[in-house]
Design a protein around this nucleic acid. Sequence first.
DNA 1: GGGAATCGGATACTCGCG
DNA 2: CGCGAGTATCCGATTCCC
Length: 608
Amino acid sequence: MFQNSYLSGSSPHAFELYIHLDWKLPSSSPSLVKRYVAMGFPKEMVVTSIKEIGHSDQNALLELLLTYKVYCEGVETECIAVLLVCNFDELENLFVLDITLFSSNSKFANQLCPLVYFVVQDIVYSRSDMRRVRKEVEAKLDNDFVQEMFEKDEKINSLVDMGFSEDEANMAIIRCGVDGDLSVLVHSISASRVAGNLNLSNHQNIAICVHLWQVMGGCFDSFGGRKKARLVEERKKKRKRCGCTGQSNQPSLDCNHDEDMLIPNPMVGFNLPNYSLPLVRVTRRILEQDMGPPYFYYENVARAPTGVWATISRSLYDIQPEFVDSKHLCATARKRGYIHNLPIENRAPLLPLPPMTIFEAFPRYKKWWPSWDQRTQFNCLLTGVAGPKLTGKIGRALASANTPPSQSIQKYVIDHCKRYNLVWVGKNKVAKLEPQEIEYLLGFPKDHTRGLGDTNRYKSLGNSFHVDTVAYHLSVLKGMFPNGVNVLSLFTGIGGGEVALHRLGINMRTVVSVEIDKASKRIFRDWWNQTQTGTLIEIDDVKSLTDDQVATYVTTFGGFDLVIGGSPCNNLAGCNRSSRHGLEGKQSVLFHHYVRILNAVKSAMARK
DNA sequence: GGGAATCGGATACTCGCG
DNA sequence: CGCGAGTATCCGATTCCC
């Protein structure tokens, strides 16, 4: 019943539920299995249950089977994520459920539910979110409960005085911790109000989820003692671990004070080609006034400091980001987040599909690749590369080592190969990738950046889009704009977005390109002149592009169909050791100009 | 709790040019 | 010899996942 409701698509806001049944068939207790199968339980479920708790306690086994049966009723074979709903009052029960069904030791977790999401008071949590919340709650139970309740009451009173409801205040404290500043709590409530408008407004679906939870809760209550004991055991282990780190008194350190973004694992966005099944299909809620045109497309690194993507999303109309690792589309990893208002149905990848492995991309490296280097794909292509000193050092280390080298030598070599994406070009000889090879991996035409010094080539390529990923998202524009598009391209760089549009066969009538780096500008201009017939207007700096100027362009070109750009990641990127200062950092702060200019386009087009 | 990944930056250096 | 452009080398922390 709930299955149909979830898949009905009646709510534009609800997560859809998929559970993938992939039961294994180990051989155990054939006669016992037969008996339960005769009672109407699927054979695979019986086998799994026996493996889970054994067959000595027949009552417990029967109860577990009943639980699984209730859980799996109506579930079809295409589903691989599950959504659970409960109230915070029921958290204790939810933890029991989590540990029982979804712990890493549970066969059930591995075989049935790789993706689990929890909906508590209309807020969607991933499993890792729930771990944090659980830590928080458990800490509350374990520590000075009375003191915390006192602090909590005081905070609630303050928030109620400010005009928030008691429920809202309670929720904010659970999300942010009782240690959270009042301003943090206020912000959380505001954000929650927005999220409340966005998510799960379909009461039917919520009711169905609650029903599921109640059914399951009933089952567990009937033999809660055993589960409860396991929960206590888990807690003890946890306490022990916390004790080792000396952080047991500061659970709030683990608490995320920003609204978390759901990053899918695997990082495949809303959908990808070659994935026969969508993973967590999220029907994004986009307000009427934020739908295109103009369509917009924003990109930045996925692993930004905590809270950055929540801020970006807030600035971009609370649209949920789409996180994609390009390793699912090509031979190199590139974990990026994208926020856009493009349709997500009927996407199509660029053809031919790019090679997925190192050897498919570069067969010649197979010759010297040692068996103990088990890489099949490259890591993220960064802006810097290894120099001859490092590769020489690796070569000398290998030359003086045994065959095969010792474990420690292997680890030293592999670690550096992974860090700098080195390839094997001779006996005991590793080398950096050539700029041309990186162009190929990222989907650019051959020699796209040729003419620059190698350092600049590596830098501009490292800062660029992965063309195939972006093209996959932009592919929906092809049918919508048969006569071509007008593009406002911010932070153009070497033109990854434009190359994607070109490879999709989408004609660019006009591109207004904003890019400050002269070398990148030259690369993009040269490419444009060689491949395009439309109008290119170049602007140096996003800061100098005024709202009035934007309005003039809108009037001149009849509006922009696409506003595309990835703002600087310098202060967000993980490998920045000296100035990873977040979204307000020196370069990354330019993100706000993306928002400003996009809003200028929207308002100018609304006036038209 | 530990392994692994990460659109980088500051600085000293080399090299070609006048 | 001074200058500037290009180059090489060194520099951990945050975050996620298992």
